[in-house]
Amino acid sequence: MKLKFRVAIAKIFIYYLFKFYVIDNAILIKDIQYNFKQRATFKNVSLFKQLHHLLIYYPEFAFLFFWRINSNFFLWKVLFLKQYSCKIFKSTKIKGGIVAYHPFGTVINAKMIGENFIFRNGLTIGNKGNNNSLLPIIGDNVEVGANVVIIGPISIGNNVIIGAGSVVVKDIPDNVIVAGNPAKVLKQNCEIN
């Protein structure tokens, strides 16, 4: 679909989405603001314009947005989404501020994920031994590189960066950078923004 036509049609639907889903939803507002902060080069625009920009130009944001509102309406997919092989289990609780960069080949099945979670392609977060009571808990301000595996009933602390290709099967403390297979702490007491 040509971009100008798609944008014109999409504006109508974005207004509807904003009015009925965003205005009173603190988690969606946090998602929009955090994604816009991570991606946009211009600042000081209204929340509606932030949503508009993200839905039009970032289909990976649209994927997360429609997961968040639990909508499978076909027209949304035509206007805003690309085909992603990404699955986020409905049972996963995710606080506001989730950001996805290229969410291809990703499966997320966690007990809880905190605020400002950033992930990249090839991420697997899941249970141990196919037992859904053995799921990870991930803290606030966690950034995960590409092709990372996080498995089992472990806790990942706040303010953590997990390097690309890491396999995390043990608890990770707050304020660290980890990488490797198995993941090991590379740097402690880090200030992560």
Results as ranks from 00 to 15, higher is better:
117 F>V: 02
142 V>A: 05
8 A>I: 14
15 Y>T: 11
2 K>H: 14
13 F>L: 14
132 N>V: 00
79 L>I: 10
18 F>M: 06
128 K>F: 10
134 L>S: 11
152 G>M: 06
83 Q>R: 13
31 D>R: 07
48 F>E: 05
38 Q>F: 15
132 N>I: 01
60 E>F: 00
71 S>K: 04
131 N>H: 04
139 G>S: 05
44 N>K: 14
76 W>D: 09
35 N>C: 13
30 K>M: 07
92 T>Q: 07
135 L>E: 03
37 K>F: 14
64 L>N: 12
151 I>H: 00
84 Y>S: 03
48 F>G: 09
125 I>V: 15
23 I>V: 15
98 I>G: 02
29 I>G: 08
39 R>Y: 13
159 N>A: 02
114 G>Q: 14
173 P>W: 02
114 G>K: 15
158 N>R: 02
104 F>W: 11
67 W>C: 00
48 F>M: 09
21 Y>T: 01
78 V>H: 01
51 L>W: 09
27 I>Y: 10
114 G>T: 12
131 N>L: 02
14 I>G: 02
43 K>H: 15
180 G>F: 08
192 I>V: 03
79 L>G: 08
166 S>R: 12
5 F>E: 13
41 T>M: 08
175 N>Y: 09
13 F>D: 05
152 G>D: 07
151 I>M: 10
91 S>R: 15
97 G>T: 03
166 S>Q: 12
54 L>G: 11
188 Q>H: 04
125 I>R: 05
145 G>R: 03
117 F>T: 01
154 I>L: 14
184 K>W: 01
121 N>W: 11
70 N>K: 13
151 I>Q: 06
111 K>V: 00
21 Y>S: 08
1 M>P: 13
163 G>Y: 10
11 K>P: 02
129 G>S: 05
44 N>T: 03
130 N>C: 02
1 M>T: 11
3 L>K: 14
146 A>Y: 09
135 L>V: 05
36 F>A: 10
53 H>M: 10
111 K>F: 03
93 K>G: 00
153 P>V: 02
23 I>C: 06
124 T>R: 08
53 H>V: 12
117 F>Y: 09
146 A>V: 08
182 P>Y: 09
30 K>P: 00
119 F>R: 09
106 T>P: 01
186 L>W: 09
159 N>S: 08
117 F>P: 13
49 K>L: 14
21 Y>Q: 07
35 N>E: 08
104 F>Y: 13
148 V>W: 02
54 L>H: 11
142 V>E: 08
47 L>W: 03
3 L>H: 08
128 K>S: 12
48 F>D: 08
38 Q>I: 14
50 Q>G: 04
67 W>I: 01
109 N>G: 05
60 E>M: 00
